[in-house]
């Protein structure tokens, strides 16, 4: 459920570090909470992001959620397939459902991210709160 080779945020993003690049997406927990994803508002290549900044929007049938950049940096690539197939986020959150690749400006920020074990442990408390997060109109 939570691959060991990734880093995680408390906002349910994952990060795959490859050299100076960070590939970013949302976790399996996040896609389950969102339900059917039907639209993704992607950033533009070249956008400069601060860590914690909202850089994409995921819309499911029931909700609208911001995606926050786990690191500071510059957007190098976006997953254009999500424009036509937003459901890839549900089907393959760690694979074809990736959102963007960011050139990492400050590698020390990676130290603040969670390991798979830490992330999984953080979800135990979260699940009790989940009824508060699901809001329909």
């Amino acid at each position: 459920m939570y691959p060991k080779d990734l880093l995680y945020t408390s906002e349910h993003e994952w990060v795959k570090v490859e050299g100076s690049k960070a590939r970013v997406g949302v976790t399996d927990y996040a896609q389950k909470e969102l339900g059917d994803v039907v639209f993704v508002d992607l950033p533009s290549v070249g956008d400069t992001l601060a860590a914690g900044q909202a850089f994409a929007v995921i819309e499911s049938v029931k909700s609208v959620s911001d995606v926050y950049s786990p690191v500071s940096g510059t957007v190098q690539a976006v997953n254009d397939r999500l424009s036509d197939s937003p459901e890839l986020i549900n089907q393959s959150p760690y694979g074809d459902g990736w959102i963007a690749e960011i050139e990492i400006a400050n590698p020390s920020e990676l130290e603040r991210l969670m390991s798979a074990e830490e992330y999984e442990a953080s979800l135990v408390g979260e699940e009790k709160e989940e009824s508060k997060e699901d809001k329909t109109e």
Binding site: E33, G35, D36, V38, S60, V61, K62, E130, S131, D134, K135, T136
Partner: peptide
């Protein structure tokens, strides 16, 4: 999956809304 609606805790979906 649950939601709050009109003062009640109700299922919002089971499998998927679609």
């Amino acid at each position: 999956r649950w939601t709050e609606f009109g003062g009640w805790r109700m299922p919002v979906h089971y499998s998927s809304i679609i």
